[in-house]
Design a binder for these strands. Structure first.
Length: 424
DNA sequence: TCTGGGGTCCTAGGACCC
DNA sequence: TCTGGGGTCCTAGGACCC
């Protein structure tokens, strides 16, 4: 009998902000998206105010003020570090762990000699004690039901943060109270489609004819349905698969009009994306660039476009990729627009060393001058901080840089931002 | 003034080939 | 009048996730 536990951090980003600032206990906290645009995380106290996920920050100003909400720009360096602390704590409890996202992990508890609910309570307490991050645990015979159980654990405090689907005396009633759009794998579009057929809760969806589900929602939808019936279709994926693409994109802090600034921003995004694939020992075969104006401004001329260039040889060399990305940008850039956003995607990723050699271009050997330069650059940036060394093409002023007015210190990863403890 | 960013998977349809 | 059929590869678009 399969048994999955889903451990999910409560209001993860907000909890991270609270770890090093105990005075925030009990105070509503929100964390804003990149560019301080939208609300992306809220503490329980903030949720109670009805602020709403994804709401533009500027529409919440009054509410923030009235309720003394602590507002933070997102600090992914901090969240990433606390996440890995949580995950390594979880890894001590089972070898069968799938890190599913920055704040969630599935554990395979099948064959556990101890009572799984007891064990999960123990896990929950330990993570809380060691990392300061509160978590909830949902347990079920499939990943999808573990998700349902997790949400139940979070919603109903009487469960003490741990809920086992199998311990539910009336699972049909529970699924009937569970909105179908909250089921893992059913998003807004499918929920709207299902509603047109009168299907609004998880129990109704589970009991639909499976052929119909497959036809309307493809195999993914069918798997979701079968999982709700208790039939495992999704396995624990312990091995982290190599990524297939890497994206870097951002909205600008203010509109950009010149190709010159666009080229600088492009250089920065290429640097970011290539750094990421390099750290995973991957090389790219292609690069896509896209640009976009601000679609929220009515009456302003709009333009969006993208284009792709194949790289003659698979590479993870920043300058080499930028050389091919710049003409792509030049090809889609049009003057006379106020641009809001630029992005880069590296695709056709493969393991370094597997790369196909080009018949047309001389291929730099592994460990050649270009590779050594990149290794040295990564090492310097790792030691002295991101962007200590960067391409001149990224520009110095970066007037288009995103807004990040309220970022908390990187308490755990930057020496000059460590928390200070006052004694006495 | 101010509206996020980074991923994956599936399917349909076209091009091309034999 | 009848106007093959199956396979592969690629891309675009649509759905989902956090």
């Amino acid at each position: 009998m399969s048994c999955f536990a889903l451990v999910d951090c409560n209001s993860f980003y907000a909890s991270c902000e609270r770890v090093f600032v105990p005075s925030l206990t009990g105070r509503p906290i929100v964390v804003l998206s990149n560019n301080d645009g939208c609300v992306v995380a809220q503490s329980a106290e903030a949720k109670a105010l009805g602020i709403g996920m994804g709401k533009p920050a500027f529409q919440c100003r009054a509410l923030f003020k009235r309720y003394n909400v602590a507002v933070f720009s997102s600090n992914y360096t901090l969240y990433g570090d606390l996440s890995s602390r949580v995950m390594s704590t979880l890894a001590r409890f089972t070898p069968n762990l799938e890190v599913y996202s920055i704040d969630e992990a599935f554990l395979d508890l099948a064959g556990m000699p101890r009572d799984v609910v007891d064990y999960s309570r123990h896990i929950r307490e330990t993570v809380g004690k060691w990392t300061g991050i509160p978590v909830s645990v949902g347990i079920g015979p499939t990943k999808t039901l573990a998700k349902v159980a997790n949400r139940t654990a979070k919603k109903d405090a009487s469960h003490g943060g741990v809920f086992h689907f199998a311990s539910c005396p009336d699972p049909d009633a529970l699924l009937e109270r569970f909105p179908v759009e909250d089921v893992w794998g059913i998003g807004r579009r499918y929920a709207a489609m299902l509603a047109r057929y009168g299907v609004v809760n998880a129990r109704q969806f589970r009991d639909l004819p499976r052929d119909w589900v497959k036809r309307k929602m493809t195999v993914g939808g069918l798997h979701t349905q079968l999982e709700l019936r208790g039939l495992p279709c999704l396995a624990l994926e312990e091995i982290v698969q190599a990524r297939k693409s890497a994206v870097s994109s951002r909205s600008f802090g203010r509109p950009v009009v010149s190709l010159e600034d666009m080229r600088e921003a492009l250089a920065m995004h290429v640097s970011r994306a290539v750094e990421r694939i390099r750290s995973e020992r991957l090389v790219a075969n292609g690069v896509t660039v896209w640009v976009q104006t601000n679609t929220f401004i009515e009456g302003e001329p709009q333009y969006a476009n993208s284009a792709f260039a194949a790289l003659p040889v698979a590479t993870a060399h920043t300058g080499g990729i930028l050389k091919h990305a710049l003409p792509v940008l030049a090809g889609i850039f049009r003057t006379g627009f106020r641009y809001k956003k630029i992005g880069v995607m590296l695709s056709g990723l493969e393991r370094q060393g597997n790369r196909q050699l080009s018949l047309l271009e001389p291929t730099p050997a592994d460990g050649g001058k270009g590779d050594r330069l990149m290794i040295a650059m990564d090492a310097i940036n790792a030691r002295f901080g991101r962007d200590t060394l960067r391409l001149a093409a990224c520009g110095l002023e970066q007037p288009w840089k995103m807004r990040q007015a309220k970022r908390s210190p990187r308490y755990t990863t930057a020496w000059d931002e460590l928390p200070t403890v006052k004694a006495g």
